[in-house]
């Protein structure tokens, strides 16, 4: 997902302009000389200016860009891309969280959580011998701590917990 600075910078210019415009069109609040429209205007303008600076590479002349993120060992060597859709694997975690949002009320916490754990674990290369017990046990442990001890109202769904 490494994009050229010109792309991310342009995106920021557009976003900043949109924010400033969004602030500008907010209706004025009666009796308030300085209202909720001022801050988005300031922020949007600032963001757009930053975007411009990035597009034109001003940040580089200020200070040499250092190593981006402290990479994990072995990460520096790019992994061999396995097929065209390999990069989409990164979207799996947010997709699983959205799955939780939509399924938890119907299936219940235990089942949804077990599916989440199993999928994440196998995606990271675990064999079923490891992933299956993990998926079977960890939801109960989490439910015991949060649902039982801390009274977080986790949905029961199809499979009520034994406690």
């Amino acid at each position: 997902m490494r994009l050229p600075d010109s792309v991310t910078g342009s995106f920021l210019v557009v976003l900043g302009a949109a924010a400033a415009y969004g602030g500008y069109i907010l209706p004025p609040v009666p009796g308030q000389p300085v209202g909720p429209n001022v801050f988005p205007l300031v922020i949007g303008t600032g963001l757009a200016l930053c975007g411009l600076a990035i597009v034109f590479g001003i940040g580089h002349s200020f200070e040499e860009e250092e190593e981006l993120i402290p990479m994990e060992d072995g990460q520096a060597a790019a992994p061999p891309p396995q097929g065209r859709f390999y990069g989409l694997r990164a979207l799996l975690p947010p997709a699983l969280l959205l799955f939780y949002v939509f399924a938890a009320d119907r299936l219940g916490f235990i089942i949804t959580a077990a599916i989440m754990v199993y999928v994440t674990s196998t995606a990271l290369g675990a064999k079923w011998k490891l992933a299956l017990p993990l998926a079977a046990l960890s939801p109960f442990a989490i439910h015991l701590i949060f649902g039982k001890l801390l009274r977080v109202p986790l949905p029961a769904g199809l499979l009520p917990t034994p406690w």
């Binding site: 990271l124 675990a126 490891l130 989490i142």
Partner: peptide, 15 residues
């Protein structure tokens, strides 16, 4: 191993 830690992190994030 990462394949046991990350799933638990996901659960904790959700809950």
């Amino acid at each position: 191993p990462r394949s046991t830690v990350m799933p638990i992190i996901m659960l904790c994030c959700a809950v």
